[in-house]
Design a protein around this nucleic acid. Structure first.
Lengths: 213, 213
DNA sequence: CGCCCCCGCAAACATACGTTTGAAACATAT
DNA sequence: ATATGTTTCAAACGTATGTTTGCGGGGGCG
């Protein structure tokens, strides 16, 4: 990863190891030894393991949410309308996630895995933290999705949004083994974009069924 | 839980605690103390924690796969055809899962959470074990799904199946908090069946888009 | 009875973990 | 050059984990 100081090296390695093995299964010792820093550095710079985990999420999510909000603003201003189509919206999210990490295209996938882990976290500490920290952007997204599928009652749309979220997170979260299986079964190697190209219509179809227009 | 011996009590408690907190986060001591058995009983009866985890899956999955296979056979014989509709198939899976645990309706959901955890497992030991143990039933399901949506290329269907699986597992895996949010946002309490009733059309729509007939 | 085998139990064992400590190294500014 | 605040380091601490051990009880059988 990048070449800067101890803090960044810890964050880089932690992000990768957490995504590979989960939070509980990743020890601070494995992080610090791979990062080439002293064990005590984590507690010195972050305070605790829990704080490290939050810092990993923060480093990705804060710029991402800012960029996404800006992209939505821009798009709304361009079209002059007050709402976006479902495809526009989904593509916007996917594009900002990709463009924000142009140097390392795999990072978006890695991070989707982290979000999947956060959702499956037992006590939900992380879920609550993320909801309180980035709830605004998330609520805005939810509102836009609801407007993009008129005629679908809000409660129904709430569930559909989570179904869609499940598809995305689950797939991107276990992408590597899935791509290996697909390659073994169907011969040709699949690219990441192929999967996204298939994923977006799938969730669109599910989200908008029964909607007017 | 049932009233039988030590082994069953361990399995009952382990199933529940694993679903609540994950495998790594659940200690043998928490299992044995809640089950009211001695700590050493786990290693005595199962050999290791890993073997316990596999036993939990086996106790649920072996009867389930057998019942599902039988149900599919029966349905195929009834209709006289060689394939089933997508709705038939999905309903069949849901129904056997529910009917097999009529005494404890929540168990199917609990177990979906376990499957979700197994999928997110780091090294994939569990994934491999389940694939080798229950691969036959799984392959048959996959084949039937493919036949139910003619005109969709196999590779495309492979991915859509995993998208659908993601919706189901993700949703049922985190059902409790989701239902709480839904209740807070929309007032009336949602039943489990309501969610399933919404989930099935969602995945059907995504699975069959672009299919002939 | 005496033997054996299965099971339950308290205790100990070894290991891995997150965290803390105190001193050394470093940088920076006066 | 001295002093001050920050960062790094090796080592230790306390705790929790999975696993093993050795003893004891109880039921079936010769």
């Amino acid at each position: 990863m990048t070449q800067h100081g101890t803090v960044a090296r810890i964050l880089d390695t932690a992000e990768q190891l957490f995504a590979e093995k989960g939070f509980a299964e990743t020890s601070l010792r494995s992080i610090t030894s791979r990062a080439g820093v002293n064990l005590a550095a984590v507690n010195y710079h972050f305070g605790s393991k829990k704080a490290l985990i939050q810092a990993v999420f923060e480093r990705f999510l804060t710029p991402f949410c800012a960029a996404l909000d800006a992209a939505i603003d821009r798009r709304l201003a361009d079209t002059g309308a007050e709402q976006l189509s479902l495809e526009d919206l989904l593509a916007l999210v996917a594009r900002t996630a990709i463009e924000l990490n142009a140097r390392d295209p795999a990072r978006g996938v890695v991070f989707m895995r982290l979000i999947g882990l956060a959702y499956n976290e037992s006590q939900g500490h992380l879920r609550r933290y993320l909801a309180s920290r980035y709830g605004n952007t998330f609520a805005r997204l939810q509102r836009l999705v609801r407007q993009a599928a008129p005629g679908v009652p809000p409660a129904e749309m709430f569930w559909r949004a989570h179904f869609a979220l499940g598809s995305v997170i689950f797939t991107l979260s276990g992408l590597a083994p899935l791509m290996a299986i697909a390659e073994a079964d169907f011969g040709r190697r699949q690219a990441f974009d192929d999967v996204v190209q298939r994923l977006l219509p799938f969730v669109s179809a599910g989200l908008r069924q029964g909607a007017n227009a």
